[in-house]
Design a protein around this nucleic acid. Structure first.
Length: 108
DNA sequence: CAAGTGACAATAA
DNA sequence: TTTATTGCCACTT
């Protein structure tokens, strides 16, 4: 089962879980918090995310506040609904208002 | 083992 | 301002 203790992924999950409801974070923010230059890793990590309930990947968006253009877990609509339900403000169907709902990590 | 692909971001034109 | 290209590094085949 190749249960590899990828601490990197765990850190990402921890950070995503640390994001309060009604707010969203960007891949760059997480990457920065982990002192890495590669934001793609975050995406891969979230894709490998076993529990969307444990790790609200829907709270993670692009640096522009945009969602994945169709690569989301169950479609951007599902993500939009969840985020909107949590109180996140949306500019368009696939873009969030980072000016109001962007969350940054404290120890950054 | 090597090459290709990829839930991104930053910079250049 | 928007679009295109490059860079980074892991995961997949």
């Amino acid at each position: 089962m190749t249960d590899t203790p990828d601490s990197f992924f765990q850190q990402i999950y921890a950070l995503v879980r640390s994001v309060p409801a009604g707010k969203v974070t960007t891949y760059g923010a997480i990457a920065n918090a982990l002192h890495t230059k590669d934001a793609r890793r975050i995406g891969h990590a979230l894709h490998a995310n076993p529990d969307s309930d444990l790790t609200p990947c829907h709270r993670v968006v692009f640096s522009d506040g945009r969602l994945a253009p169709g690569y989301a877990f169950g479609g951007p609509k599902e993500q939009l609904r969840k985020l909107e339900l949590e109180g996140v403000v949306f500019l368009t169907d696939t873009q969030v208002d980072l000016s109001k709902s962007l969350y940054t990590f404290p120890a950054l």
